[in-house]
Design a binder for these strands. Structure first.
Length: 152
DNA sequence: GCCAACGTTGGC
DNA sequence: GCCAACGTTGGC
């Protein structure tokens, strides 16, 4: 899951203890959160649009897909007037931190690692803010960050 | 700051 | 229903 650190950072998640992943307004990302993400699923928390972009920590899903109520909150930045609470269009999950990587894993290093070939994040112009990660890629990113997935 | 990709919007 | 215009994302 991607977040711009200025908007919502890993440090903020640590401080909050958990968060609603609200504001996703893309159908593909919505479908992943609604259909595929299950409680306990691990998540790479990625800081985008910063120098360099990097994975900062591992989180997990602590609440499965449910309506993103910010869509019908007129005061929210994510207000979507075309949707209503009767038939919610947008869904979110809640996540909580599991482990901070001892060293952040930077995008250029990920690109340089042949073991991560094919990872969605590394595809050119991959803008999706929620993406699936294969188990082996996940473990490799953790390893690069000094975290042994077996200990999670 | 640039710009490619891609999703969305709206005129026709 | 097509497609041009426009906005957003996000690496570089």
């Amino acid at each position: 899951m991607k977040s711009e650190p200025d908007a919502y950072s890993w440090e903020q998640l640590l401080a909050d203890g958990s968060t609603h992943w609200d504001g996703v307004r893309n159908y593909q990302a919505r479908n992943l959160m609604r259909d595929d993400m299950k409680e306990g699923d691990l998540v790479l928390f990625y800081h985008s649009n910063c120098k360099p972009p990097h994975v900062a920590g591992v989180a997990q899903v602590c609440k499965e897909g449910y309506p993103d109520f910010s869509a019908w909150d007129v005061d929210s930045n994510y207000y979507d007037p075309k949707t209503d609470s009767e038939e919610p269009t947008w869904m979110m999950v809640d996540i909580e931190p599991v482990a901070t990587l001892s060293t952040t894993v930077e995008l250029p290093d990920m690109r340089a690692n042949p073991a991560l070939e094919g990872m969605a994040l590394l595809q050119r112009f991959q803008r999706l803010s929620v993406q699936p990660v294969g188990e082996e890629h996940f473990a490799e990113v953790c390893r690069m960050g000094g975290l042994d997935t077996a200990t999670i």
